[in-house]
């Protein structure tokens, strides 16, 4: 429980850093670190397959996508950066305060200490994926294909 609390606190700090970072690249790195901490939490909740997916796809692939997108955009000039930093600080300073206030409020009026859950017979994730939720796999393939076609359509060069 204590380790979970520490990990969740690190996760929250990473998220706040991601949101408040002035440089977009730092935000992308913060997001990757958030994914890493989330995967550790998933490992602790015995969801190892989902944790591996989170680590490889979200911490790896999505960070690459973000950093590539950011690298295609224009870098801010130094004067722009200074003005933007002041604007961002004025816009984002309430966030840590709101989060601290919400945390105090939620822990103060905390959820019931004992919650009864209806436990269902456990199934292996592979059995669920291949037997119960096999239609999801077709859906995933279709979504991936749609994404690939979307990217092709977006980056198609005009032939003149």
């Amino acid at each position: 429980m204590m380790i979970d609390l520490i990990l969740l606190s690190v996760l929250l700090i990473m998220v706040i850093w991601t949101v408040m970072a002035i440089r977009l690249v730092r935000s992308a790195v913060g997001l990757a670190l958030t994914s890493v901490v989330l995967s550790i939490l998933m490992f602790r909740l015995n969801a190892s397959l989902a944790a591996v997916f989170e680590l490889s796809v979200c911490a790896g692939l999505i960070s690459v996508i973000f950093i590539t997108t950011i690298s295609f955009t224009r870098r801010m000039s130094k004067s722009d950066f200074k003005t933007r930093r002041r604007q961002r600080l004025s816009k984002f300073w309430p966030l840590p305060l709101i989060i601290i206030a919400a945390a105090i409020l939620l822990f103060w009026r905390h959820f019931p200490s004992e919650v009864i859950f209806i436990r269902v017979p456990a199934e292996n994730v592979r059995d669920v994926l291949w037997n119960t939720r096999h239609i999801d796999l077709f859906g995933q393939v279709l979504v991936l294909l749609a994404g690939a076609f979307g990217v092709v359509a977006l980056f198609k060069e005009n032939k003149k």
Partner: peptide
């Protein structure tokens, strides 16, 4: 984890991650 049905939860989480990636790429 709490309902003891981690298999289904992981399957849904994996589907969510796949959709998330495609959404982010597009």
């Amino acid at each position: 984890y709490l309902t003891g049905n981690l298999g289904l939860a992981q399957a849904i989480a994996i589907t969510l991650i796949v959709i998330e990636v495609v959404f982010m790429v597009v």
